[in-house]
Design a protein around this nucleic acid. Structure first.
Lengths: 472, 472
DNA sequence: AAATTTGTCTATTTACATTTC
DNA sequence: GGAAATGTAAATAGACAAATT
C-alpha cells in the first residue's frame, strides 16, 4: 500500500494499474508507450522519478526501471542519472525522409536527390558492356562483398578521396544505407550505444532504432567534437562506437578539422571504438582532407557511396573494413542481400578504370557550383552554410523561427525543406535551421523559384503565423 | 561456500571462477562460449543442471540462468524444461553456404545456383530499354518498395503462382534474402521465436541469428507439420511467427499438402502468428497448389524471388505483405537498402508484361527436367527425393553414412554437396542425407561426372573411411 | 564540498510450468 | 499418475555512480 497519498503532488504521469493482467513491467511499458503515442505525454515531458512512481504504485523500483528500459530501447524515452527521465524529442515524429507522393506543385528540396540529369557516362558504359558476348554472365550470383577486381577498382576510386587502402579490405555493399545497416547489424548488439553528432543523418537513426542500438549525442564546441565530450561518452555513456560524417556533414555541411580527426583517431584506438566514417560527400571535394580512417585504419569502417557523387540508381557503395571486422561485415551483408548486383558492380568498375566516373563526378561538381551560386544570390542576407561543391545548404534561421515553423511556412509557399528537428539525436534541443537539398529541384528555374519563395518567407514583414492555416 | 564437494560427481562442465573480475553472469557466459568455441565442450554435450552448477559455484540459480540465456541467444545452447541444457548441434559449424574460392577441380553441387546459361531474354530486354531516350532516368532513386507499375506487374506474375493479390500489398525487395531480412528485422524483436521445419534454409538461420531471433523446430509426421506440434509450439515455446517453404522445400524438396496449408492457416489466424511463406521455387511449378497465403492473407508474408526461376543477378523479389505489416516491412527495407535498383525493377516488369519472363521460366523448367533425368539415371538405386522441375535433389543415404561423412567423401572425389547437418535447426538429430544442387555444375557433362562420382562413393565396397585423409 | 536525487546494474527470492522417470 | 528434475520468468533487494543542488 502507498505510504501516503500523492493526490496533491503534481506527478506528470499517474498510470492506473488496476486493470492489468500479466507482468507488471510490461503493462507499465505498454501504458507509457500508448500515452506517448496518443499525445497524452508530449515530447520533452519529464516523467516522475522511478522511485516516486514505484512508491506511488506500491511496487519495486526495479520494476519501473525495467518498464522504462523497454520504452527507452524503442526510442521513446531518454534518461540521465541525476537528472530524470524524459519523453524523447522525436518520440512522435516520423523520421523517414521520403518525398511525398502526391505533392502537386511542391518543389522538392527535402530528400537528398543528386542532380538527376547526369547519367550519360553511365548509360554509355552500359551500352558498351551489353553488346559483349559474356554480358549474360553478369546475371549470375555475385560474390558476397564483391570480386577482387571490383575491390581493386574500388581502391583506385578511394585514392581520389585521399585514401590509400589494400583492396582486400574493401567490401562492396548495395549503397550507403546498406553499408550502414550491415555494419550496425554485424558489429553491434541490441542495447549497444553509438556516439553521433547531435544532428545527424536520419537513415542512421532509423536503422539504429530498428536494431535496438542507441544513439548518444556527443558534445561539440564550434561544430567540432570535443575531446572531453568523447572521453565522457566512452567512460560514462559506455559507447562502443561512433558515427561521423567528416566531410560536408549532413545536415550541417561542416567539415571536420584535421586536428579533430587526429584526436578522434587517438581516442578510438585507446578505447577500441568501432568508428563508422561516412564519406558520403567526400568524392565531391577535389582534394579532401585525409580521412579519419587513415589515422586509425584498424578502428574505422569507411563508407564511400556513389549515390551522391555519381548516381543513386547504381546502388553501389564501398566499405573499407579493418581485418578484425571484415568477416562480420561481409556476413551481415550476406544475411541482408546475398550479393550485390554484379551488373552494377561491373558497370561501376569499368567507369572507374575508364575515367568516365571522374567525368561524371566533375560534372556534378560544376552543376553543384552553379546551383549554389543561385542560392547565394537569393539568400545573400542570411547565414547559409555549405561549400560550393556540396549538395546541401544549412540555413540558419532568424531567432523568431523554429526549424519546424519555417518548414511549415515554406511548405505553404510551395517548397519542401527539412527542419533541424528531423536530424536531432536524443534530447538535444534543436537549432533553428533547415536543410536545403539544392540538387533536388528538377531544374535551375525550379531551384530559383524555390529559393525566392524561401527568401520571401524569411522577411520579417511576412512573419505572420496562421495567416493561411495552422502548422499541425 | 558449497554444501558439499562435487569432486566425485561427473559434471560435464566445471568452470573455474577464481579469477573473475566484473559481473559473474558475464564471466560465466564468456567462459562457456570460449569452451564451446575451442572444442572443450562439443556439440550435443549436456551441461549440468542450472541448480547443480549454481550449488557447485555457490551462487544463485538465476545467475546461471542469465549466463546460459546469453549463450542461448547467440545460438550456442539449446535448453528444454525438464530435460536440460545442451550445446547446440551447430554451435561450431560455419553456417554460411558459399562456394569455395580456390576449389580447383571441384564440381560445385553445394550452393543453389540456377542454370547460368539462361539469360538471353533478360539481355534482349535490357538492350531494348537502353536505347530509349529516358533510360538514364532509371539511375535516379527508386521509391522504397517499388512504384505502382512495378507492383502491378508483380501481381500479374504472382497469378502464375496461383496467387491473386492486390498490387497495393506488394512490396519489392532486392532479392529473397533481402525480403527475409527485412521481414525479420521489421516485424520481430531480439528474443522472439519463429517456428521452422527441423531442416531449413540456412540463409534464414544466419539472418535470424544475427538479429537475435530464435528458431524453434516444429514437429513433423511424414514430412508434414502436425497440428499438435504447432499448437505445442504456440502454447509452450511461445513462438510469434513461422517460416515455411511449402513448394519444393529447401532442402528436403517436399511439397506441403493442401490440407496442411489449411490447417496451418487456421492456427495462424487463431494465434495471430506472423507467417513467412517462402515461395522460392513456386514459379517453377506449372500449376502450383494455392499458396498458404491464400488461406490466411492477413497473417502471411509471401515472398516470390526471381533468383531461382529467372536469374540471380536481377536481385528482385516480391513480398506480399498484409496491410497490418506492410508499413513496417517497407520501413525495414528502407533502413537496409533505401531503394531497390530501378533499372532491375523496370527490366523485370517489362519481362513480365512482354511474356519474356514466362519464356525464361519455361526454359529453366526444361533444363531442370533434363538435369534431373541425368541424376535419376545414375542414382536409380537410391532414394533421391525431388520433382522433375526442381533445382535440388535430396539424397537419402544408406544408414552407414552420416551426411557429414558423405559430404567429406564426395569432396575427396571432387564433388561439393551439402549435408543435412548444414540445414539443421536447434538440436534436431539430423537425417542421413545430402542436398544436391543439380543446376550448379556448369554443364551437363560436369553434372554427369559429379553424379557418377557420387554414385560410386555410395557403393558399399568403397566405404572405407580414412583411405585418403581424415574429414576434420 | 557534501548531501541528495536519480538512474543503472547485478544478484537474489519466489513462484511456476513442463518434462522425465 | 504422481513425484522429482529442470528451465523460465517476474519481482525484489541492495550496492553503486553520476548529476544536481
Amino acid at each position: 500500500m502507498p505510504v501516503n497519498s500523492f493526490e496533491d503532488y503534481p506527478m506528470s504521469w499517474k498510470p492506473d494499474l488496476s486493470d492489468v493482467k500479466g507482468p507488471l513491467y510490461k503493462a507499465i511499458a505498454e501504458k507509457l508507450e500508448h500515452n506517448i503515442k496518443t499525445g497524452v505525454l508530449t515530447p520533452g515531458t519529464r516523467l516522475p522519478p522511478q522511485r516516486e512512481l514505484a512508491d506511488f504504485l506500491d511496487i519495486n523500483l526495479s520494476t519501473i526501471s525495467r518498464a522504462f528500459k523497454l520504452c527507452e530501447q524503442k526510442g521513446l524515452l531518454c534518461a540521465t542519472v541525476g537528472n530524470g527521465t524524459f519523453v524523447a524529442a522525436d518520440a512522435a515524429a516520423n523520421p523517414f525522409l521520403l518525398p511525398e507522393e502526391d505533392a502537386l506543385g511542391i518543389i522538392e528540396m527535402g530528400p537528398l536527390f543528386p542532380d538527376m540529369t547526369i547519367t550519360e557516362e553511365i548509360v554509355a558504359q552500359l551500352k558498351k558492356m551489353i553488346i559483349e558476348p559474356d554480358f549474360g554472365k553478369l546475371f549470375r550470383y555475385g560474390r558476397p562483398g564483391g570480386t577482387l577486381w571490383q575491390k581493386e577498382t574500388g581502391a583506385k576510386l578511394l585514392r581520389k578521396a585521399s585514401y590509400s587502402v589494400n583492396p582486400e579490405n574493401i567490401v562492396l555493399a548495395s549503397g550507403g544505407q546498406n553499408a550502414i545497416a550491415a555494419i550496425l547489424a554485424g558489429l553491434f548488439q541490441p542495447g549497444d550505444r553509438i556516439g553521433t553528432d547531435a544532428l545527424t543523418f536520419p537513415g542512421l537513426k532509423t536503422a539504429a532504432k530498428m536494431l535496438g542500438i542507441q544513439l548518444i549525442p556527443l558534445q561539440h564546441e564550434n561544430n567540432e567534437l570535443t575531446e572531453a565530450g568523447l572521453r565522457y561518452a566512452c567512460k560514462t555513456e559506455n559507447i562502443s562506437g561512433i558515427y561521423v560524417i567528416p566531410d560536408y556533414h549532413n545536415p550541417t555541411t561542416h567539415t571536420m578539422s584535421a586536428a579533430t580527426r587526429k584526436m578522434l583517431a587517438e581516442i578510438a584506438k585507446k578505447e577500441c571504438l568501432i568508428v563508422i566514417e561516412d564519406a558520403i560527400h567526400s568524392l565531391l571535394i577535389e582534394s579532401p582532407l585525409a580521412p579519419l580512417a587513415s589515422y586509425a585504419p584498424e578502428q574505422v569502417l569507411y563508407i564511400a557511396s556513389l549515390s551522391k557523387v555519381a548516381s543513386p540508381g547504381l546502388r553501389i557503395a564501398y566499405i573499407v573494413a579493418p581485418d578484425q571486422y571484415r568477416k562480420k561485415v561481409t556476413e551481415a551483408l550476406y544475411n541482408m542481400n546475398t550479393s550485390i548486383s554484379p551488373v552494377m558492380a561491373e558497370l561501376v568498375s569499368r567507369m572507374i578504370i575508364s575515367g568516365d566516373l571522374d567525368k561524371t563526378i566533375a560534372r556534378h561538381r560544376s552543376q553543384n557550383r552553379l546551383r549554389n551560386s543561385i542560392v547565394d544570390r537569393y539568400l545573400s542576407g542570411y547565414k547559409v552554410m555549405g561549400e560550393p561543391e556540396g549538395i546541401i545548404r544549412w540555413l540558419i534561421l532568424p531567432e523568431r523561427f523554429t526549424g519546424e515553423a519555417f518548414e511549415a511556412k515554406a511548405y505553404q509557399r510551395g517548397v519542401q525543406v527539412y527542419s533541424a528537428e528531423r536530424f536531432v539525436v536524443g534530447n538535444t534541443s534543436p537549432s533553428n535551421a533547415v536543410r536545403l537539398a539544392i540538387t533536388a529541384p528538377e531544374s535551375l528555374s525550379k531551384l530559383e523559384e524555390a529559393v525566392l519563395a524561401g527568401a520571401e518567407g524569411l522577411e520579417p514583414s511576412t512573419n505572420g503565423f496562421g495567416d493561411h492555416y495552422s502548422t499541425n
